[in-house]
Design a protein around this nucleic acid. Structure first.
Lengths: 170, 170
DNA sequence: GGATGAATACTCGGATATTTATTGTCCGAGTCATCCTGG
DNA sequence: CCAGGATGACTCGGACAATAAATATCCGAGTATTCATCC
């Protein structure tokens, strides 16, 4: 099992968008070029982020994507779920109710949830909580601290040459 | 993304094996029949559990599978990893090093790990830790507490009619 | 010169192929139990 | 009646297809810009 690669793409893209001036947008083409990704496939994931109301799209020439909320208000869990889906990792199919003995069992024998299901859900909750407590702002701050300042400046320069200022708020 | 269904199958099967008398075995056929599963496909997963040294196989007639260790010494993480693989959920492909700016960047610009990779790994560790702190014995105990005693007895009866006593320890 | 209108280029959005991973199946190798034969 | 050996049936083990999901791509809908034309 593995997470979709789109999750990685999405996380990097929203991190870039978080670093832009307020209201500014970047088109798919620029985001794809910067990361060396397929433009058309990245578009699919940016759509998913748009549907999840994490980013918003500005159509037409000079259009693009920008964050819909502040980085502090966007958790990593939201981004992961937007791209990879909201369904649980472990899906209990109730195989305890499928054997030959299950047919004879009283109805109330299965009123309590499956213990295995509970145990797996517990671990999954820990994962989601860990993702929920980390926001996009944390990622950006870490980037600012860790990455070579010269490299940061190069990125800002490159981005500023390609970003589009927003005409107005939606 | 979803975990393999085989994880659910494996968890239920080892739970059943944990309830057997010491040394007794059950063949794939019985385990599959009890849960209403495909015998051949379940066999594949039991193989994986064998390779992970969680259960062991006894070949030949009157053969089958049995736990290789005590339930207290088998964590859920081991079972999950045995079937679903030990690779991480999130795989950082270092796309930060793939853009046009990355080529010009100094080598030491990427000495520190990718912040997104770190954040995702943190969540994943929480998931693994939660699985690691729960053992097979916990599952069995919960089952003993929750499930209708009459149903438990029916299961024990059904199993005792099909289990094979172990000739000797390996 | 300014305003209006149509044409245009660029953007996102969803529907459509291709590749990979998961799911499911089959047949062969090995082993213990059973049965038959001989002492 | 007991021991030995060959036979046979049952088990696991890994190699081989079918299905589902993820990956990658293409073309159409919509919009702000731009340019030409008219007033």
């Amino acid at each position: 099992m593995k997470l979709s690669e789109g999750v990685e793409w999405g996380l990097h893209c929203v991190s870039v968008l978080a670093g832009l001036p307020s209201g500014a947008t970047l088109p798919t083409k620029t985001l794809a070029e910067y990361h060396g990704l397929s433009e058309t496939y990245l578009s699919k994931h940016l759509q998913a982020l748009t549907n999840a109301r994490i980013i918003e799209s500005v159509p037409g020439p000079r259009g693009g994507y920008r964050l819909l909320r502040l980085p502090e208000e966007i958790t990593l869990l939201e981004i992961v779920e937007a791209i990879d889906g909201r369904e649980p990792l472990f899906r209990c199919t109730e195989i305890r109710q499928r054997g030959p003995l299950a047919c004879e069992a009283s109805a109330q024998a299965y009123r309590l949830p499956c213990g295995i299901h509970v145990a797996m859900a517990r671990a999954e909750k820990a994962w989601r909580e860990a993702l929920k407590t980390q926001t996009l702002a944390d990622i950006v701050n870490q980037y600012t601290q860790d990455v070579d300042p010269q490299q940061q400046q190069r990125r800002n320069q490159w981005m500023s040459e390609r970003l589009r200022s927003a005409p107005k708020k939606s």
